[in-house]
Amino acid sequence: MRIGVVTFPGTLDDRDAARAVRLAGGEAVALWHADADLKGVDAVVLPGGFSYGDYLRAGAISRFAPVTQAIVDAAKGGLPVLGICNGFQVLTEAHLLPGSMIKNEHLSFICREQELRVENASTAWTSDYAQGELITIPLKNQDGQYVADERTLDELEGEGRVVFRYTGWNPNGSRRDIAGVSNERGNVVGLMPHPEHAVEPGFGPDGAKGPRSGTDGLKFFTSVLTSLVS
């Protein structure tokens, strides 16, 4: 299975995302922002970073990149797409996911190991998790406060499209503790925390097996491989 990983000018986590794909057993395919060719990939990851310097708004300029236009079309046809952090911001700006992100409520950049609850284990990117499973993965952002109007939030809750919720502490003031959401079909998922940084023992958050042993993010990438096979 071939998973595309997009690089915009200012993307930071594309190498980690590609590594996560390989550790899960997939083939990582580099996709370039200026290239509308998706190279026949079976799924796409939009990694984190500060694409185009976050100029205008986080993710706003990336929305108009040729590769994003191609991804929007393919996502509407069912292509699994995962947006992480800045990638999530790109997906909201591209109208593939509802809502938007504004500056953290406390105004500070935040970097911590964050616990989340998997609220929907039936999307293309979460099927290997158990419903309600608690996972810990890194969170690092400046503009991470998820906002949407009350009607949209009610719709998301009612349709099971809140995919991840912060537990223990809401790190950025996100409405209803929302950490990640999906589109109606469940093939497009976006979240602020970083699963690609928690995929290999020795490099992840602290876990049950000791310091930096946490690999709770790996199942994002195995999930999509599973969903593509079935």
């Binding site: 504004i102 953290n104 409520e105 105004l107 003031g173």
Partner: peptide
């Protein structure tokens, strides 16, 4: 401008 109902963290800091 940020929507009136959206908290404006930058404005608050200023």
């Amino acid at each position: 401008m940020p929507k009136p109902e959206i908290l404006d963290p930058q404005g608050k800091a200023v």
